[in-house]
Design a protein around this nucleic acid. Structure first.
Length: 696
DNA sequence: ATTTCCTATCTTTTT
DNA sequence: GATAGGAAAT
């Protein structure tokens, strides 16, 4: 039976939250106040009170958070019950809604989901078509406008610029015709389905009687509308959020939803979690002082439970190279200090080898013995993904293991996207977007001219691209050479598709087809080096493996494709990877680390240049606040005077946020001091540190 | 049609 | 420093 969960370890507010199961509940949970523990305990409590797990839904912001929550509940109660819970993102929830009901909205059941890459490609086409090329219109800007419009309640009509709006309309029409939806459509259509079809609404409201929404401050108005449709009376809905950690305003997130919530679900039970168990007092003082700079927030302060602690360090460097190298060296140094709770274990020969600069297996063995901090205790936080590169480079030079979280997404890799497109076409040749992608990849004689004729033809005849390709009258329209190529291609696809329908193993078919179609050969030929070839090969291998794993769970190919698109993290494997964490501030939300380095506190980076232009500096301040509150024991804030940008050195000014920090809890180390400390001194310091440790 | 080489532009943040 | 898109060469 259920192992149970220990409610006695919770504080009064947390316990109150865990026990408030019925009616609307609003939990305002500051950073590090045991939010996740509280929410998971609350779910466990629902189960223990006899609520059927099928009736419980928890919506999180990322798939990673969803997996984590489910695992944690599973650790507290009966595993089988926990696995029957529905824990997912708004987007995957909508896929579920639409898989059943999208036909009511005029789409065919086998709709496909467009990736951001597909979106960009489409938008580019229309920019060209509408003559936006002269005006230097960027696809990203149009997409952003579309997304903003779809997520607001006004729709595409709210796009001011005529050209933008025209392109947006073209794009929407094209998607609809191709029976495809983008990420925003998932929410849009999901909400529409429930709002316009009472049978659907009734079904889902009955299906989920207890709903929890995590990171509620990051929901936008569309997600809020969706939530309203999902929740039936009595309103057993619990939302958890912290206005100070709202960092997705650019995606339409509205902190005002917290107020909205109280209006729509009247008299919620409001619970505040303010006692922080994560960080030292020093870290929290700095965080609290900083966030006070934001106006219009709910006044609250994180109360420390760990008094004192090491001062937060603020360091400046001459350049990004120096910054990265110092961080790497400092990590090695702090690591050698060992864990906070020092045991009496004496360093031995292993440490000698370590100081001697040895590496590899010997070093790893040394670590285990010598009570050193784990690499996983460290995290380095960056404002943008690109800033991570320099650090990566230095880590490689200095032999420090690291893991990148969500940096360059799995599904941004060409071979992965191609392979998935192939798979989708094999599963359903009528998937237009995917078919167009692989039509001439590798080059098989169906070039630009033929491709253009094809899309025009299919649009005109209101048939899918696949149908057009197979039509004799279309083939008569293109060159003889192209027609032959098309015929051959169609045969190949048809053949593989038939085999899949006939029950052939999808993985084998995909792998085989990528070989016989010449894709793999072409891919390899186009790589410059062996390492690149290996990477591509690995990418394909990863696809095969994840496909096999998913199918092994009894899921369909279609489900695999959907999950893949919505969950671009390379799930378990990435998490198991060992090393120092390199991560963006956005991706770091919800995580915690004993030692945190927060880099690039510079004007134009944090706050980001674009935020200054757009007047959203408050959000940047929250972003910094999120970064600071990730730290448990030690926090280092760094900035530098110049940075290499596009191969060119650019001057950098200290961030305006530095002036807002609480210097009572900060130890500042400036340029001059650093300059005087020669590299040699560092080495000596390291050496004597090691000696002292050896002598006990 | 395809490949190759040159150039322009790029950078927030994520489902 | 990478990468996508265009022009020129095959």
């Amino acid at each position: 039976m259920a192992a149970g969960f220990d409610i006695s370890k919770l504080n009064a507010a947390q316990r109150e939250a865990v026990e408030a199961l019925d009616g609307p509940v609003l939990i305002l949970a500051g950073a590090g106040t045991g939010k996740t523990r509280t929410v998971t305990c609350r779910m466990a409590n629902l189960l223990q009170k006899g609520i059927s797990p099928e009736k419980i839904l928890a919506v999180t912001f990322t798939n990673k958070a969803a997996r984590e929550m489910q695992e944690r509940v599973a650790g507290m109660v009966d595993k089988k019950a926990a696995n029957k819970l529905t824990v997912c993102t708004f987007h995957s929830l909508c896929v579920r809604l639409l898989r059943n009901g999208i036909e009511r909205l005029g789409y065919k059941k086998n709709f496909s989901i467009c990736t951001p890459g597909d979106q960009t490609a489409l938008i580019k086409q229309f920019i060209v078509k509408r003559g936006g090329i002269r005006e230097k219109i960027k696809p990203g800007d149009v997409l952003a406008a579309i997304s903003r419009a779809k997520n607001s309640d006004k729709g595409l009509a709210s796009i001011e610029d005529d050209l933008y709006r025209t392109i947006a309309e073209d794009y929407t029409r094209e998607l609809q015709m191709r029976n495809a939806v983008d990420f925003d459509d998932l929410l849009l259509l999901g909400e529409k389905l429930l709002r316009e079809h009472s049978e659907e609404r009734a079904y889902w409201q009955e299906r989920f009687r207890y709903i929890t929404v995590d990171e509620f401050q990051d929901t936008n108005s569309l997600q809020m509308s969706l939530l309203k449709q999902m929740v039936g009376t009595p309103y057993n809905v619990c939302v958890v959020g912290d206005d100070d950690q709202s960092i997705y305003g650019w995606r339409g997130a509205e902190v005002a939803n917290i107020l909205q919530f109280e209006r729509f679900f009247p008299d919620p039970h409001v619970i505040r979690l303010e006692e922080n168990y994560r960080s030292t007092e020093a870290v929290l003082r700095v965080a609290n002082k900083l966030i006070k700079g934001n106006l219009g927030r709910r006044e609250k302060e994180l109360r420390p439970t760990i008094p004192g602690g090491a001062l937060v360090r603020l360091l400046s460097f001459t350049g990004d190279e120096a910054e990265a190298e110092w961080i790497a060296d400092e990590i090695k140094a702090i690591r050698r200090e060992g864990k906070r709770k020092k045991t009496e274990a004496k360093p031995d020969a292993a440490v000698m080898r370590l100081i001697g600069g040895g590496g590899g297996a010997a070093e790893e063995a040394a670590l285990a013995d010598a009570n050193l901090r784990a690499w996983e205790d460290f995290a380095i936080l960056f404002r943008t993904n690109t800033l991570i590169r320099k650090m990566e480079q230095v880590f490689r030079e200095k032999d420090i293991p690291y893991r990148l979280v969500g940096a360059q997404s799995f599904y941004d890799r060409r071979e992965v996207r191609d392979a998935l497109a192939y798979l989708q076409v094999i599963a359903d040749p009528n998937s237009d977007v995917a078919l167009l992608r692989i039509l001439n990849t590798p080059p098989r004689g169906i070039g630009e001219v033929a491709s253009l004729a094809l899309t025009d033809w299919s649009r005109e005849h209101e048939e899918t691209v696949w149908e057009s390709l197979n039509s004799e009258s279309f083939r008569a329209e293109v060159s003889k050479k192209a027609a032959t190529a098309i015929a051959g291609f169609c045969d190949e696809i048809q053949n593989v598709h038939d085999q899949l329908i006939g029950g052939h193993d999808a993985r084998d078919l995909l792998e085989g087809f990528l070989e016989t179609s010449g894709y793999v050969e072409w891919l390899m030929k186009n790589q410059k080096s062996d390492t690149e070839r290996d990477q591509r090969r690995q990418g394909l291998a990863d696809v095969y493996e994840s496909l096999e794993r998913t199918l092994g769970k009894g899921k369909s190919v279609q489900t695999y494709l959907e999950e893949s698109l919505l969950d671009p993290q390379k799930d378990d494997e990435l998490e198991k990877k060992q090393g120092v964490t390199l991560i963006t501030l956005h991706a770091a939300k919800g995580l915690e680390f004993p030692v945190v380095f927060l880099t690039g506190l510079e004007e134009g980076i944090l706050p980001h240049k674009r935020s200054i232009e757009e007047g959203t500096k408050d959000e940047e301040r929250r972003l910094l606040y999120v970064g600071i509150t990730r730290a448990q024991e030690r926090l280092m804030l760094t900035y530098c005077g110049k940075r290499v940008k596009w191969g060119e050195e650019v001057r950098s000014e200290p961030s305006c946020f530095i002036g807002e920090l609480d210097f009572d809890w900060i130890e500042e180390i400036d340029y001059e001091a650093m300059m005087q400390e020669e590299a040699n001194d560092d080495d000596l310091e390291d050496f004597f540190g090691g000696m002292r440790e050896m002598l006990g």
